[in-house]
Amino acid sequence: MMDIKDIVKEENLVYTKTKLMTDNILSYCPGCGHGTAHRIVMEVIDELGLQSQTVGIAPVGCSVLAYDFMNIDMIQAAHGRAPAVATGVKRTMPDKYVFTYQGDGDLAAIGTAETIHVCNRGENITMIFINNGIYGMTGGQMAPTTLEGMKTSTSPYGRDLKSMGNPLKITELIAQLPGTYYVTRQAVHTPAAVRKTKKAVFKAFEVQKEKKGISFIEIVSNCNSGWKMSPVKSNEWMVEHMFPFYPMGDIKVDGELVKSNKAEVKS
């Protein structure tokens, strides 16, 4: 056995946090998928060498402080308005890379109009959508994506579909629009899931480079504080309850709906 001191040397380093993540301590709860999702996006931008050409937009939600952590030029937007802000940036700087980083309340409730229309126009941007089925920042209220029966502080007896409406599959919805080119649903709870998500983010920036329209990546994630579980337990709960309703995988690739999803959208 080698001594640890002999292993821990600069030349043996195989993985460390990208320099595109700042050294600020993340404001997220322990075990929250936001940190992992942030790092994946920053790793891709770093590996593609796009730091100087990328503008990120994070609106209101837990990730409103994303600019404290992402070491690129960032714009903080009003609640739900990131797609409009991104349109303003991208239309005036069509050769720069622009992404939004939005939560479920932001993208699928207050900003639904902006989401639908940015996708319908096919702006050449990348949208990262964190879906944890709850409003984390304001303390665990019901989100548009909250599952049936799921307890939140504004659905304390569980989401009742009759009075509170149905969980919204906005990703399937926007995939129907001609302006979307690549639509996928991923997660960041396991090493394999992280690797797949990173591949998806790479593809999304490639699509943006080729100016083919919207690339949209939903990341189903945990909210252990909002769900009132330990981080590991919340990831297990997510696999058990969120994944059946929000299934993993590509929904639209190269502008074409993936077959399995075509069937699902109809049913």
């Binding site: 714009i75 937007a77 902006e114 639908i116």
Partner: peptide, 18 residues
Amino acid sequence: QAESELAAINMVYGAAAA
């Protein structure tokens, strides 16, 4: 032409930010 005034003013915000 934006989809709403909400979107229009935020497009302004984005372009001005750049």
